[in-house]
Design a protein around this nucleic acid. Structure first.
Length: 156
DNA sequence: GCCAACGTTGGC
DNA sequence: GCCAACGTTGGC
């Protein structure tokens, strides 16, 4: 099973909103970055777990856990001229952008602020892409070791 | 609001 | 293929 971290602004895709949805499931769409696209399309599997991270807010950090319930399929918003994420260079015959569906699992027992995660940037979380300078990926892999370490932070 | 970092675009 | 310009991200 794979582990991931999904980053979004809480106003755009927030954990409380997801929890309140029917089926507590939503497409993770609007990703327009090729590196992230490749992971959505090729690597994420049903059953994989992901930390949900809130960015561009008062306290950026990991707020909960979601599960992949549908594997990569074309992101419909790219074909809609009225959609924010419309891409005129894409076509249904050869879609450029993909999305997965994720389901709410749970909130963290407490939010894990970026500032706290950073204190382990030279230790157990040294290779976590989130902590690398200038990181802008909205989808990134997490190793099993990193996953377990971050989970354990909940109880501190 | 500022600014550093990054990805993308487009002229050549 | 290079690289400057530009737009976006995201922490602070």
């Amino acid at each position: 099973m794979g582990y991931w971290l999904l980053k979004s602004e809480p106003d755009v895709f927030g954990i409380d909103h997801l929890k309140g949805r029917h089926d507590q499931t939503e497409p993770w769409d609007g990703v327009r970055n090729y590196q992230a696209r490749n992971m959505l399309r090729d690597q994420m599997r049903v059953g994989d777990l992901a930390f949900l991270y809130h960015s561009s807010c008062t306290v950026p950090g990991i707020v909960g856990i979601v599960q992949v319930v549908r594997e990569g399929y074309p992101d419909a918003s790219q074909f809609d001229p009225d959609a924010k994420y419309f891409d005129p260079k894409s076509s249904p015959a050869s879609p450029r952008w993909y999305r997965v569906d994720v389901r709410y699992k749970r909130h963290m027992k407490r939010p894990l602020p970026l500032a706290e995660l950073r204190t382990y940037a030279s230790g157990p979380l040294a290779d976590l892409p989130l902590l690398r300078k200038g990181n802008r990926l909205s989808v990134m892999p997490v190793t099993p070791e990193q996953w377990e370490f971050i989970l354990a932070l909940e109880n501190r």
